[in-house]
Design a protein around this nucleic acid. Structure first.
Lengths: 291, 291
DNA sequence: GTTCCGCATGAATCGATAG
DNA sequence: ACTATCGATTCATGCGGAA
């Protein structure tokens, strides 16, 4: 099967209009959080965040299949010692847009940012909001089963420090790279808490998104040959994982640095590129390059 | 020090009016969830939840000291396959009431048993919303430090042997910014994710609250002799833990079953009881019993 | 080849200082 | 008074060089 990987340079709000209705099986993305990543993205003020996001989510709603799923990784910022409410407001606003807020997964980050403050601890979790267009969406639960945890066998084991840690890594989340260890073990369904580390030390770039995160949702919500969309593709993790797992994918990013980085990291023969080219005062045109 | 434990029978909305202004250091509670526990609390409809809770939170705001903290354990119900938004709406409404939404802790339930529905996995986490009246609240972070992660055993143990010498000669160039900060370090500050088990073995009542939960917040936000309030005291966990930790405490519950149960489980000599007694058409009076 | 150790670096947040 | 920038703080991870 030929797997298509598409990459667009531009503002998602506009670029998405080029995609046909009901053509995507899974949207999984991590938009710039309010006032974060100012260097690479613009940095949206918390008060303007909902207003900024709604036109994009409207397009996402249109391109998603009725059986598809939208997974939104987001966390509100602390402003003046208090958590902003823009994520709450966004959920409420998106429901009015027609989205069903089906689930909130928790990404429990093993290595959260260090620091100490008089009035709060380190923030070590993020929201993974699941939205759907219909109650009857595709979900392949058997694809993400995990080995049964130690807790099931012996609760006699006392809670030494080492046991706790060992238990943490195996419990619930469903991640772990050595699948071979699972063979022969009884497997169970995971929970809605995902316990994994951020990837802070990739070679030339930093991806806030560890590969396991899109991988888990791609396994859970799509099958081979389905289409995955990431409207804020950043360093391209979602595209690489989709390709490896034999799903078509579409990535969009507004920054040419990320666009070029992703382009250089994917085999050009397998990449569809769309970048806007401006000719002075003429109406912006788009060059559609299939290599 | 004499520790006072008070127990009120009645509706928190009304009973709280008897408490003086700025008299409580910590409020920690788990109110009845919408449409849950119908048998005991009557079940508040999700659409009416905010409306029902706001008069209570207004009283809580009044009785809390400016340096105090309100920890609200709450989780929205899934209605027709979708998460209700009343918790989001409650946060927004409470901010308009004057509360600061300082933090959202996650209670990751360690031993939540794997389960499966067609459209979702087992829900193994709950929100612990922290509200304050002011940015300058009491927080005793040193009381809740946790053992350092395993990585340190491998790293710092050996480091101490070789690097101590080097550190003496060439100061400040070792691990991190200052090696001496790390040598011999065995505990670190926790994060805002609490990984606790649910309590599965309760004698003859169902308490969703494991003792560790109020205990952690009581350690973090109060000192001995402070006052803890639980306006939905249920089976009384908050009171027992407060008493054990030498904090005064006040519990309120609307159901006489819970009231009687808590009463029977605390040494009567140490319990202050307040229960309303009705005399037909006469104006309801209250009997204040100190035993 | 393994294991071990040194080190940079993160969707951070606060308080002080500067314009 | 109000915003912008900066230094200090802190813990876990994975890479790469060394033993």
């Amino acid at each position: 099967m030929e797997i298509r990987t598409g990459l667009f340079l531009g503002d998602s709000k506009d670029v998405l209009k080029q995609l046909p209705d009901s053509s995507v099986d899974l949207i999984v993305t991590s938009p710039p959080y309010a006032d974060q990543r100012k260097g690479t993205y613009g940095g949206i003020h918390p008060d303007k965040y909902v207003e900024w996001f709604l036109p994009i989510s409207a397009q996402l709603f249109r391109v998603l299949k009725p059986t598809g799923t939208f997974v939104l990784n987001i966390k509100e910022k602390v402003v003046a010692g208090e958590r902003s409410t823009y994520v709450m407001e966004l959920i409420i606003a998106m429901r009015k847009q027609g989205w069903l807020w089906t689930e909130e997964f928790i990404w429990h980050k093993k290595n959260s940012f260090p620091g100490k403050w008089p009035n709060r601890f380190r923030d070590s979790w993020e929201r993974l909001l699941q939205f759907n267009k219909s109650k009857h969406f595709n979900m392949y639960q058997n694809e993400v089963k995990v080995p049964i945890g130690d807790w099931a066998k012996g609760r006699l084991k006392n809670l030494s420090a080492t046991d706790k840690v060992r238990d943490n890594t195996k419990n619930g989340s469903g991640f772990g790279k050595n699948v071979s260890n699972w063979l022969g073990k009884e497997s169970v369904f995971p929970t809605n808490v995902l316990h994994l580390a951020t990837e802070c030390n990739n070679k030339n770039h930093s991806a806030a998104f560890p590969e396991e995160l899109p991988e888990w949702f791609i396994k859970l919500f799509t099958k081979q040959g389905d289409t995955v969309l990431d409207p804020f593709v950043g360093s391209g993790t979602t595209l690489f994982v989709s390709k490896r797992m034999k799903r078509h994918s579409i990535g969009i990013d507004i920054t040419s640095e990320y666009y070029e980085m992703v382009k250089s990291r994917i085999n050009p023969a397998e990449l569809y590129l769309i970048e806007p080219v401006k000719y002075g005062k003429t109406k912006p045109q788009r060059r559609y390059a299939i290599r």
